[in-house]
Amino acid sequence: MTGATEATAGASPAPEGRRKERLDRGLKVRTEGLYAVNSYREITYLVGPRLLLILGLAVLPLLLPNLYWQRVLCVAGAYALLAISFDFLANYVGLVCVGGAFMTGVGGFTAGIFTYYLHVPWPISILLGTVLGAALVTLIWLPSLPLRGIYFAILTFMFPFLARGVILALGILGGTEGLGPVAGMDNIWIENYLVIVVLLVAVFGLRRLVGEDAGIVLRGVKDNDMAVQASGISVTRTKAKGLFIGSLAGCFAGAYIVHLYNFMGTSLFATDYSILPIAAAVMGGSGTLAGPMLGALILTPLSELLRGFGQLRVVLYALVLVGFILFKPEGLLNWLTRKYHQFEKWTKV
């Protein structure tokens, strides 16, 4: 016979075997269109997780047994903001920033200077500390923005040490001893709810932002900066905008901590502020923004429980980081989201 023979795919039987199939839940598919508003069940499916987060955070301070744990919540909130900032910068702008402590330091000192030296009321100094601090951080890191990946990470990691060295060497801003008391909020409920409101604004605001045009450009810079340049967009300017937005969260955390502790000193540049947010982001789920927040809200109280072990707490972060990177790199929230939206079943091939 001449001519090519028809190779028939179905002629020989397919191999025996089964595989796990992953399918979207019917409810999820139904809620994708406009008709989701037709039924309460579908609205609940959409709004439920978000509402759970808002209500959960809103009642959390009421449920805490004593002042000590309420203070822990404040600190956890500050770490959560740093974690969100890290996640946003790393996964949506492409800047792996390991210098969260620099943001807390600059934001904290800026806000603290206003309150301590100029006797500005704390809400205004926190606001000024956040905005001016973020501007300052962006300005200082501007020359290093062309760097990518590990190089940017190394550079940002060095900055807290640098700033601390400058303050210690020159003896300015309180030098080794720090400055205090900085007039603070002095009301645990205000302290609690301020950080919770800012957290929610940060999470929902940033999640909205990354879906908008501006956010798409930011993600474009992360994926392929050459193509972004070819589209007529300045990469450095876009990165600077992203860095400013990310630093806002970090600097607020610093300004908040200063007014929480009524004290500002070089401890604001502590490496904890750089490292714990990364562990939280990896644990919670990189790229989800809400995940790192959850991670921080879990990790901080956990490390508080282990306070008796002193410096060994750092080992805990390291273990969490290594454990999650090795065994669950997607993080908690990505995993939960998948379980929420999809189900699995075995199918025969």
Binding site: P15, G17, R19, K20, L326, K328, P329, E330, N334
Partner: peptide, 12 residues
Amino acid sequence: MRGGERITVLGE
């Protein structure tokens, strides 16, 4: 590890 796509290979 990443929790991404599930790849299934069958056959000989």
